[in-house]
Simulated assay, not measured.
Amino acid sequence: MLIADTAKQVIDTANHAINAPTIPQEELRFGDLLLKGGWVMIPLGILLALALVMFFERYFTIRKAARDESSLMGQVKASIIAGKLDSAIALCRNSNTPLGRMLQKGLLRIGRPIKDIEGAIENIGKLEVSKLEKNIGIIGIVAGIAPMFGFIGTIAGVIKIFYDISKTDNISMGTISGGLYQKMITSAAGLIVGIIAYVCYQILNMMVDKVILKLETDAIEFIDLLEEPSK
């Protein structure tokens, strides 16, 4: 009889568990997940927006400077060979490009020693490169400090966990979940923002290096062209 009663209780418990209404799982949206990161997500969002704005502004500027100027170089070379110095200067002025401004400075120094012309071109080249590198350093700063903000969020999350435990005197998943959310979300967000900014920073640096190499090559070709008559 005892065994039969025990079996009946087990069956009743199983039937109750099967027939019990299921609690619908709350779907966690991406926006709600970000909000659980707390106030640290605000500066991280600002840093991400700043890095992206700076990246696209510099990207299109450097891309414009990196366009192929072989036609300009050919026209300037033809004008110099033909003895039309004023025409060559006008071509460089109208191009409104880093290479054009470098060649224009060199053309205006024709008649002086080659060393003076090289120095003038080099100085203009440095100025043009500094213009291209403007604000790139800000993206590098974002790449460095974004993970630090994530670490601050981690510390804030740990503090929240201990504060909630001390307030409720209850160590349960419900008590510590809020701090864990903040801890993990801010850490991940800081790393993601830092990685994005770092990649953008490296892309822009590679683009600038490519422009520098092209400007140096064209400058050498221009100096060689000026030295030809004296050889």
Results as ranks from 00 to 15, higher is better:
residue 115 K to E: 13
residue 115 K to N: 14
residue 115 K to M: 09
residue 115 K to F: 09
residue 116 D to K: 12
residue 116 D to Q: 12
residue 116 D to V: 13
residue 117 I to L: 05
residue 118 E to Y: 04
residue 118 E to D: 14
residue 118 E to G: 12
residue 119 G to Y: 08
residue 119 G to W: 02
residue 119 G to V: 08
residue 120 A to E: 14
residue 120 A to C: 11
residue 120 A to Y: 07
residue 121 I to F: 03
residue 121 I to N: 02
residue 121 I to W: 06
residue 121 I to G: 05
residue 122 E to M: 11
residue 122 E to A: 15
residue 122 E to N: 14
residue 122 E to I: 08
residue 123 N to F: 13
residue 124 I to K: 08
residue 124 I to H: 00
residue 124 I to W: 02
residue 124 I to P: 03
residue 124 I to G: 04
residue 126 K to W: 04
residue 126 K to N: 15
residue 127 L to G: 15
residue 127 L to Y: 10
residue 127 L to T: 15
residue 127 L to P: 00
residue 127 L to W: 09
residue 128 E to G: 07
residue 128 E to S: 06
residue 128 E to Y: 10
residue 128 E to T: 04
residue 128 E to P: 10
residue 128 E to D: 12
residue 128 E to C: 10
residue 129 V to F: 03
residue 129 V to R: 04
residue 130 S to P: 02
residue 130 S to M: 12
residue 130 S to C: 06
residue 130 S to T: 12
residue 131 K to A: 13
residue 131 K to D: 11
residue 132 L to S: 00
residue 132 L to V: 01
residue 132 L to N: 06
residue 132 L to M: 14
residue 132 L to P: 08
residue 133 E to F: 10
residue 133 E to N: 14
residue 133 E to T: 12
residue 133 E to S: 14
residue 133 E to W: 01
residue 133 E to P: 09
residue 133 E to G: 11
residue 134 K to V: 02
residue 134 K to D: 07
residue 135 N to A: 13
residue 135 N to V: 08
residue 135 N to M: 11
residue 136 I to F: 09
residue 136 I to P: 05
residue 136 I to T: 15
residue 136 I to S: 10
residue 137 G to L: 06
residue 137 G to C: 11
residue 137 G to V: 10
residue 137 G to S: 13
residue 138 I to F: 15
residue 139 I to G: 08
residue 140 G to H: 09
residue 140 G to L: 04
residue 140 G to M: 12
residue 140 G to W: 08
residue 141 I to E: 02
residue 141 I to N: 13
residue 141 I to L: 14
residue 141 I to V: 15
residue 142 V to S: 09
residue 142 V to Y: 08
residue 143 A to D: 03
residue 143 A to F: 07
residue 144 G to Q: 12
residue 144 G to S: 15
residue 144 G to N: 15
residue 145 I to S: 06
residue 145 I to G: 08
residue 145 I to W: 04
residue 146 A to F: 05
residue 146 A to L: 10
residue 146 A to E: 01
residue 146 A to Y: 03
residue 146 A to S: 14
residue 146 A to R: 05
residue 147 P to E: 09
residue 147 P to Q: 07
residue 147 P to L: 05
residue 148 M to N: 14
residue 148 M to K: 11
residue 149 F to R: 06
residue 149 F to Q: 06
residue 149 F to P: 06
residue 149 F to D: 01
residue 150 G to V: 08
residue 150 G to M: 09
residue 150 G to N: 05
residue 150 G to C: 11
residue 150 G to P: 03
residue 151 F to G: 08
residue 152 I to N: 07
residue 152 I to L: 15
residue 153 G to R: 02
residue 153 G to W: 01
residue 153 G to P: 07
residue 154 T to K: 05
residue 154 T to P: 01
residue 154 T to N: 02
residue 155 I to R: 06
residue 155 I to H: 02
residue 155 I to F: 09
residue 155 I to N: 00
residue 156 A to H: 03
residue 156 A to N: 12
residue 156 A to Q: 05
residue 156 A to R: 03
residue 157 G to C: 09
residue 158 V to E: 01
residue 158 V to W: 00
residue 158 V to A: 10
residue 159 I to E: 01
residue 159 I to D: 04
residue 160 K to A: 11
residue 160 K to G: 06
residue 160 K to E: 05
residue 161 I to D: 00
residue 161 I to W: 03
residue 162 F to L: 08
residue 162 F to V: 05
residue 163 Y to I: 07
residue 164 D to V: 04
residue 164 D to F: 10
residue 165 I to T: 00
residue 165 I to W: 00
residue 165 I to E: 00
residue 165 I to S: 04
